[in-house]
């Protein structure tokens, strides 16, 4: 193998691996990324079973239905619109009505949201950043005291 061939081999292999990496990243960006939506935005969307969505907002007061089995239902609101979310499993420790929450999952054809993971605030002063931003944008931002009432 001449020096030139050798160099071409290396460049070829490096190029191929990098091309694979870039291709994979683009493919994954297409459908493996979850977009963050508020309940108002969700209301105007058409359900797409292949599209993962992160739904952020506040758990509507009095909307939590723990049911008798392991599936719970609650409504997530941005104080304009609200979406019913169903989730099977254990809610996080800090899940409370009136508090910020982020649910990840898929919008169902009937307009409800089927979540496969639910995140709540991590500590007393923490509201998921996306939720705080979204609420701020809609001028519905209060301190957490007012939200809990």
């Amino acid at each position: 193998m001449t020096r030139k061939q050798r160099r071409l081999t290396f460049i070829g292999v490096i190029g191929a691996v990098l091309a694979c990496a870039v291709g994979l990243v683009f493919a994954a960006m297409g459908d493996k990324v979850a977009f963050f939506k508020t309940p108002s935005e969700l209301a105007t969307m058409t359900p797409d079973p292949g599209k993962r969505i992160r739904l952020g907002g506040l758990v509507e007061d009095g909307s939590l239905d723990r049911g008798t089995d392991t599936t719970v239902r609650f409504r997530v609101t941005d104080l304009n619109d609200a979406v019913t979310v169903s989730y099977t499993g254990i809610l996080p420790d800090l899940f409370r009505e009136g508090q910020g929450v982020v649910a990840e999952g898929i919008l169902q054809p009937d307009g409800t949201f089927r979540a496969d993971s639910v995140l709540a605030r991590h500590d007393e002063s923490y509201m998921p950043k996306e939720v705080a931003d979204a609420l701020k944008e809609q001028n519905h931002y209060f301190e957490s005291e007012t939200l809990t009432q």
Binding site: V17, A28, K32, A34, F35
Partner: peptide, 18 residues
């Protein structure tokens, strides 16, 4: 200003095959 979350599905598809 668009907010997205990149989670396990993304990494499983990119990191895994590499």
């Amino acid at each position: 200003g668009e907010k997205i979350s990149v989670g396990a599905p993304f990494f499983n598809l990119t990191f895994g095959p590499l």
